[in-house]
């Protein structure tokens, strides 16, 4: 399967979890990768795996919620590869607290990393996509955006914000051959969900019709699908990958 041969994908939060799986899946489909995250060491590991697949990987650590570093990152990627065809806005954090105990910095940090970074990265990357009249932007939202979750008002707001962002930008770019879609994972086995107490895990599993947590690769395959030529007529949509949790 080399349907993405010659294409370049930028994935934020690519050091682990869903971002790492998406980067590897896109590399297996033939794409070269630009990898971003805060910690370089994890990115180097993922880059090694991508190079082992015979694809090129550029490691670009930095804060993707700030325009300056992002413009630098995109410039570096363009000098290296010449174009960016796929953007996966995946960087995300949680700072859980019940609302009455939620601090303003918990709110601000989550919104900054999860939502603002998607805006900043999309603005930086879309310039080139508009020029070449093609591109794929995939925003990693969450089923929590759709159903809400006690203790995650900040996270839910940021992920719901991504959906509104997705639809608006999809409308702006539709006439230029750029599709913009969101993927809403349910509970996936990552570091973000690993530390859940056993009781919470059981509670969750009871609410997933399929009865088990998903793997990062389940989400990654949807990202690859939305990057592929076969989905050129799909834009402004939200795809749940959640074992049937929300339907």
């Amino acid at each position: 399967m080399i349907e993405l041969q010659g294409q370049v994908a930028l994935v934020t939060g690519a050091g682990r979890g869903i971002g790492r799986a998406a980067a590897l899946e896109l590399a297996r489909a033939g794409a070269d990768l630009v990898l971003s995250a805060r910690t370089q060491a994890q990115l180097e590991e993922v880059a090694g795996e991508i190079q082992a697949l015979g694809r090129r990987a550029l490691v670009a650590p930095g804060d993707v919620s700030q325009a300056g570093p992002v413009e630098g990152l995109v410039g570096h990627a363009l000098r290296e590869f010449g174009h960016i065809d796929i953007l996966v806005n995946n960087a995300g954090i949680t700072r859980d607290a019940v609302l009455l105990r939620m601090k303003e910095e918990d709110w601000d940090q989550v919104l900054q990393v999860n939502l603002r970074s998607a805006f900043v990265c999309t603005r930086a990357v879309s310039k080139g996509m508009l020029k070449q009249r093609s591109g794929r932007i995939i925003n990693i939202s969450s089923v929590i955006a759709l159903m809400g979750n006690a203790g995650q008002a900040n996270y839910a707001a940021s992920k719901a914000g991504l959906i509104g962002f997705t639809r608006s930008v999809a409308r702006e770019f539709a006439s230029r051959g750029i599709t913009v879609n969101a993927v809403a994972p349910g509970y996936i086995e990552t570091e973000m969900t690993r530390d859940l107490p056993q009781k919470a895990r059981e509670w969750i599993q009871e609410r997933i019709p399929m009865g088990f947590l998903g793997q990062p690769e389940d989400v990654a395959r949807m990202v690859r699908f939305l990057s592929a030529p076969e989905t050129r007529y799909v834009t402004g949509q939200v795809f749940n990958v959640d074992g049937g949790m929300v339907m």
Partner: peptide, 11 residues
Amino acid sequence: ADSLDIVEMVM
């Protein structure tokens, strides 16, 4: 021209 055309033209 639409608004996006103008932005692209200025670019």
